[in-house]
Write a protein that binds this DNA or RNA. Structure first.
Lengths: 213, 213
DNA sequence: CATACTTTTGAACGATGGTTCAAATCTCCG
DNA sequence: CGGAGATTTGAACCATCGTTCAAAAGTATG
């Protein structure tokens, strides 16, 4: 969820909703352009052009480029965290849950605008925002680490280092944004499932048969 | 290897070597700054500062920023391709070779300056140079794809999609540059070996025992 | 030394990008 | 309709970045 810093403290309800809605529009447009042109390469003017509005107007909704960037990243991470929560609720065995985490992650970041890949470049943020975003990212990584940890405890996974394994997995899936093409041979879901199979098998203990959801 | 376009066509031997040596120095310095500040974020002035020289001097050795960038990337890829060739020569079984490819890749891009991570951002290059660099990168990716393919043919790997698997592996290992810290708990080699074990096991056929070099 | 060359310098130029702001426009409610 | 706020505009400002260039410094050779 996006945390709104009401710049103008408007009347109770209507105006506030209107403003929030507009912020959403801007975030979505920014996501779209980021994906198309790359994060660092897109300027405020590009984002404004995508919306058909004047540059200056962006600054009515966001303090500066960094704040806009941070919001986009938090937004993307919020979506992923929601997925993680849903997967956890299934109560499936660790391998099946890890499988799903991977599959859904690949689908999410590669199709549909709200996915966005922006959170992959935290370096672009200044000290203040970076911590904020990184905290969320750590939370998301923890979903992977915990699942791996639980799998080890349950004996379905080998005794790997949960941190290194989680980062290997996240690296593999995040990398897909660099080469996935919507008009390619395979869908995001197909690729997600293939990668899930590879990566989950990589941590599976000997003698255990993979449980795929 | 770096392909030198002798800008000034100097006398036979000495001057040429001197110039080449200087180019090396610049490439190394550029690599260092890129790693520290990020690719897009570093300017010509930063690179010059790293060397303690004036900005303009860079343009005596490289036509423009793009050429410098392309050379850094080709340089990094050349190092990786050399590793790939050496691994192939070992004649080991496919799983052992893939293991080594992964291990050495992680070591190379994470320690020592000449490793560099610059080749991860091909988008920064213009049309002309991009093809040049991408061709080399494809060649490197082919080393992974071929090894996987051979493993499948030999029955040591499951029948995975070599392309998707290769990209998953490369994603996992390339991602290490985003989180590896030289002063962390584990060395680049340790991390490389752990990831190699995870990733190779991921493609291993049922019943085959991993052969680690 | 003197000469011819390579190498280095740093100021300056033009373009671009983030940002500001006063004015114009829109939106609602009395 | 009128006026008070919210929203939008776009020109202008300023810093930065890639790049150029004429001049200075260095280096080797006769």
């Amino acid at each position: 969820m996006v945390q709104i810093s009401a710049a103008h403290r408007p009347e109770p309800r209507d105006a506030r909703d209107k403003s929030l809605e507009k912020k959403r529009e801007i975030l979505d447009a920014a996501s779209r352009v980021f994906r198309r042109r790359g994060l660092q390469a897109t300027g405020m003017r590009d984002i404004a052009a995508e919306l058909g509005m004047a540059v200056g107007n962006l600054y009515y909704y966001f303090k500066d480029k960094e704040e806009l960037l941070a919001f986009v990243q938090e937004d993307a991470l919020a979506g992923l965290l929601e997925i993680a929560a849903r997967v956890r609720e299934t109560g499936l065995r660790a391998d099946a849950r890890l499988f799903r985490l991977i599959e859904e992650h690949v689908v999410r970041i590669n199709e549909g605008t709200p996915g966005s890949l922006a959170h992959l470049e935290v370096e672009a943020l200044g000290e203040t925002w970076r911590r904020e975003v990184q905290e969320r990212r750590d939370e998301y990584e923890r979903a992977f680490r915990d699942t791996i940890q639980e799998g080890i405890a349950a004996g379905v996974f080998r005794p790997v280092d949960p941190k290194v394994s989680a980062l290997a997995i996240l690296g593999a899936v995040n990398w897909t944004v660099k080469w996935f093409r919507p008009d390619g041979r395979k869908s995001a879901r197909e690729i997600g499932r293939e990668q899930a199979e590879l990566l989950v098998r990589g941590v599976l203990a000997a003698g255990v048969t993979l449980e795929t959801p």
